[in-house]
Computed example of a mutant assay.
Amino acid sequence: MAIDYDGGLTCSMGVASLDASIAWYQDVLGFTLLYRVDEIAWCELSTAVARVNVGLGQREAAGGAGGSTLTFGVVNIDAAKAELDRHNVRQDGPIRDIPGMVRLLTFYDPDDNALMFYQDLSEAHG
């Protein structure tokens, strides 16, 4: 029996403070709060990617090394980096260029969860 996916994706990450994290994801990345359930310290935010949401769960030990890295495609990675800089977001070095393929920038939320932007340079997106 094959799995019948519905096309949606929710990416879940642990955070230390739901209030602070909601504000950061809205203010810095422009995500929109869809709902919040304080009884279980959980919320979901919509992204600019259709049917891709970010779920945040408050935990005692949040963020840090390991796990998945959410990687969001952007039209202009230099402009996206400037917005991160404007919000003093910690980044893992400069934009990395892989000529003819992609430009990459790794950055971190306040709980040290790694996130990434990519700008597609392939001819299919040129």
Rank of each mutant, 00 (worst) to 15 (best):
M1N: 13
A2D: 10
A2W: 10
A2I: 12
D4N: 12
Y5G: 09
D6E: 01
D6P: 07
G7W: 01
G7E: 00
G8P: 06
G8W: 10
L9T: 06
S12D: 06
S12C: 04
S12E: 08
M13L: 13
M13V: 06
G14N: 08
V15C: 13
V15S: 01
A16T: 15
L18F: 03
L18P: 07
L18E: 01
D19R: 08
D19A: 11
S21H: 11
I22D: 00
A23L: 09
W24D: 01
Y25F: 11
Q26E: 12
D27H: 10
D27A: 14
V28N: 08
L29P: 06
L29D: 02
G30M: 11
F31D: 00
T32F: 06
T32D: 07
L33V: 02
L34G: 15
L34S: 12
L34E: 13
Y35I: 03
V37P: 05
V37Q: 14
V37L: 14
D38C: 05
D38N: 10
D38I: 02
E39C: 08
I40F: 09
W42E: 00
W42L: 00
W42C: 00
C43Y: 00
C43D: 00
E44S: 02
L45C: 03
S46N: 05
T47E: 01
T47D: 01
T47Q: 10
T47R: 14
T47N: 06
A48W: 11
A50M: 10
A50G: 06
A50C: 08
R51N: 12
V52F: 10
V54I: 15
V54F: 08
V54S: 02
V54M: 12
G55K: 05
L56K: 07
G57L: 04
R59S: 02
A61E: 15
A62M: 10
A62F: 08
G63E: 01
G63L: 07
G63C: 06
G66N: 03
G67L: 08
G67E: 02
G67N: 05
T69K: 06
T69M: 11
L70T: 05
L70S: 05
L70P: 07
T71K: 09
F72L: 15
G73E: 14
G73W: 13
V74D: 04
V74Y: 07
V75P: 04
V75D: 09
V75T: 15
V75E: 10
N76L: 07
N76H: 14
I77F: 05
D78K: 11
D78E: 15
D78S: 14
A80Y: 11
K81W: 08
A82H: 12
A82P: 11
L84Q: 08
D85N: 11
R86V: 04
H87W: 12
V89Y: 12
V89S: 11
D92C: 06
P94S: 15
D97E: 13
D97L: 15
I98E: 01
I98L: 07
P99A: 02
P99S: 02
G100P: 11
M101H: 07
M101K: 07
R103P: 03
T106E: 05
T106S: 10
Y108A: 05
D109W: 07
P110A: 08
D112L: 09
D112H: 13
D112A: 11
A114C: 10
L115T: 00
D120R: 03
D120H: 02
L121C: 01
L121H: 03
S122L: 03
S122A: 03
A124G: 15
